[in-house]
Design a protein around this nucleic acid. Structure first.
Length: 560
RNA sequence: GCGCUCGUAGCUCAGGGGAUAGAGCGUUGCCCUGCGGAGGCAAAGGUCGCAGGUUCGAAUCCUGCCGAGCGCGCCA
């Protein structure tokens, strides 16, 4: 299979690089050390499609005015089929204008690429693991987890498009203190259903959902978990409860169209000779372990941390940190991922450097670990802030939102805001104005195109043999330029780990299409050649819209 | 107190060294004799938190200050 074509942006960069070499060889510019060339999309269309600021950056090195540098470069820019003209603009920009016929011809390449359009080989041959959500199975998935789900799931789709082999994983915290507390809470609720006067433990989980789980287990398994009064409950009850919780979590995430390739159990780390014991002896061997105050510590200050951290508490239980080290050891060393991306809520920020330090200590590469933190979501009903705490009585779950506004709008909304920006999720707005959610604007564009293409087919019109050079209208050209942008967006999402660029691009693309639609009639029986060309443009637009929506995990409806 | 993140239009947010700072929503005013009006066009709305600094050029980088969120457990 042929690899993806180079981005037009990169070809422009190469033209500038070659112009610099040629200008220096010709003596129009003095010799100096190589400069990295970058180009950008000017804000104003009159400044062209791409702009290079190289003259401004090297004016000092060249000991010339930037405008003169630009002029010297312009003379040496090699000809390129995609470039109609190159202009110098004050104070020293080199502006590139794409040839309309070339831009139009790209419609054919896009249609030919189909759902592979904007794929790249950026990550080819690299295995990346993306771990996200990983919420404790002691309560239902809440709104904040939904944000992590949207980001992780979409990032996975985009990285796959960029050639990575992607593993999407949910780490199940099925061991440890919180799970034990959940088990005791559940047993209390279970006993209550049998008429016993017991109350849930202090620090227990007061939520109604625990009662629901208890009731389900009672109905399914009867009294088999019941022990004599005063005794502790059966561990089987806790296990059964967790399984039910997990089932619910899977369902909730699946409702948002989040699908994992792997569910990884924390408990499985603890097996004889498993990752946990391996890591503990590894740390011990390397002298990073100290015993004091009845606990076992990782002397992380030795590797630059601000303080040491407990691995095994004085009650003999491993901390979350210890098992997390084992988990990351398993990711890096045992499973050998080239890159690991952890997506956490910003409240885990303090954990980042600790984990990186530990990764380094057990033989992983901390630079291959990216921790993507997303700021917390403030849930609102109008002006009223709704508490998100899993321990509060009334909680709004992710499922509530998905059921209300649908998976597409939920994902789009979560993706819209950059991860390190706090965001408000106004339920009132999401519910009452769901028709005005921008996702519909984008999906509508796709449905509209599908409708026109269907109508064309009915009338036996097709894009067969389209002459794209007829696509010269401003609106056609503007749309074509948007289509050409997706590969750059995909690259940016991958390099910055920032999927929020997708919904913004999707809106721009939809706008360009709707504008084209109102200005350019597609089906015109008296203009068969133009009709063919515009149908072809529609086909290309549909490909790009569907692809963009697909990368967000959002459906591309043919009718709405 | 220390650390991380953030402060851009009335609201929600993009932009994160480049030319006259953008979008959606809201507001105001236009546009259907034709392919889906869930649409299009236009207007109004900004000392980019404040003050210094670096630079040919700063909303963007650096420093300080102000304000907000989160973290600084033998919780996860």
């Amino acid at each position: 299979m042929e690899g993806p074509r180079p981005l037009i942006r990169d070809e422009i960069i190469r033209l500038v690089e070659r112009a610099l070499e040629a200008a220096q060889a010709a003596g129009d510019l003095p010799q100096f050390a190589g400069q990295e060339v970058t180009v950008e999309h000017p804000a104003r269309a009159e400044h062209g499609d791409f702009s290079a600021n190289l003259p401004l950056r090297i004016q000092g090195l060249a000991r010339m005015k930037a405008i003169e540098v630009a002029e010297a470069l312009r003379k040496h820019v090699p000809a390129h089929e995609a470039v109609e003209r190159v202009a110098v603009a004050p104070p020293g920009f080199l502006n590139f204008y794409l040839a309309p016929a070339w831009a139009a011809a790209q419609a054919s390449s896009i249609v030919a690429a189909g759902e592979d359009y904007a794929s790249s080989d950026l990550g080819t041959g690299k295995r990346v693991q993306i771990e996200y959500v990983s919420a404790n199975p002691t309560g239902p998935i809440h709104v904040g987890n939904g944000r992590g789900a949207a980001i992780g799931s979409s990032l996975a789709l985009v990285m796959e498009a960029a050639g990575y082999e992607v593993e999407q994983e949910y780490y199940i915290n099925d061991a440890g203190t919180q799970v034990a507390i959940f088990g005791r809470t559940l047993y209390a609720r279970y006993q209550q259903l049998f008429g016993r006067e017991v109350s849930i433990p202090e620090n227990g989980y007061p939520g109604e959902y625990v009662v629901d789980i208890a009731r389900t287990l009672k109905e399914r398994d009867g009294d088999r978990y019941l022990r004599p009064e005063g005794e502790e409950g059966s561990p089987d009850l806790g296990k059964a409860g967790l399984d039910l919780m997990l089932e619910g979590i899977r369902d909730d995430l699946a409702a948002m169209h989040v699908e994992y390739t792997q569910w990884y159990s924390e408990r499985s780390l603890m097996s004889e000779g498993g990752p946990y014991s391996e890591v503990m002896s590894l740390l011990e061997k390397q002298g990073y372990v100290a015993r004091r105050e009845g606990a076992v510590w990782f002397t992380s200050t030795e590797v630059g941390e601000s303080k040491d951290n407990v691995l095994i508490r004085s009650d003999g239980q491993p901390t979350y940190y210890a098992t997390d080290i084992a988990y990351h050891y398993d990711k890096f060393v045992t499973r050998g991922f080239d890159r690991v991306i952890d997506i956490w809520g910003a409240d885990h920020q303090g954990h980042v450097s600790r984990v990186k330090a530990a990764v380094a200590a057990v033989g992983g590469d901390p630079d291959a670990l990216d921790v993507l933190l997303y700021q917390l979501v403030t849930l609102k009903r109008g002006d009223q802030v709704v508490p998100l705490s899993k321990r509060a009585g009334e909680i709004v779950t992710l499922r509530d939102i998905v059921d209300e506004v649908g998976p597409d709008a939920t994902r789009f909304f979560f993706l819209l805001t950059g991860a390190n920006q706090t965001m408000d999720f106004d339920l009132e707005l999401a519910k009452t104005q769901s028709d005005e959610n921008p996702v519909y604007y984008v999906q509508y564009a796709h449905a509209r195109i599908s409708s026109i293409l269907a109508k064309a087919e009915e009338e036996s019109l097709s894009s067969e043999g389209a002459d794209t050079s007829l696509l010269t209208h401003d609106a056609e050209q503007a749309l074509l330029r948007k289509l050409l942008l997706l590969p750059e967006v995909v690259e940016k999402v991958v390099l910055d780990l920032a999927p929020h660029h997708l919904p913004h691009y999707a809106q721009e693309l939809a706008t360009a299409f709707h504008s084209f639609y109102t200005q350019c009639r597609v089906i015109q029986p008296q203009e068969p050649a133009l009709t063919r060309a515009r149908l072809h443009l529609l086909e290309a637009t549909r490909v790009v819209l569907a692809r963009t929506l697909g990368l967000m995990g959002i459906s591309a409806p043919t009718s709405m």
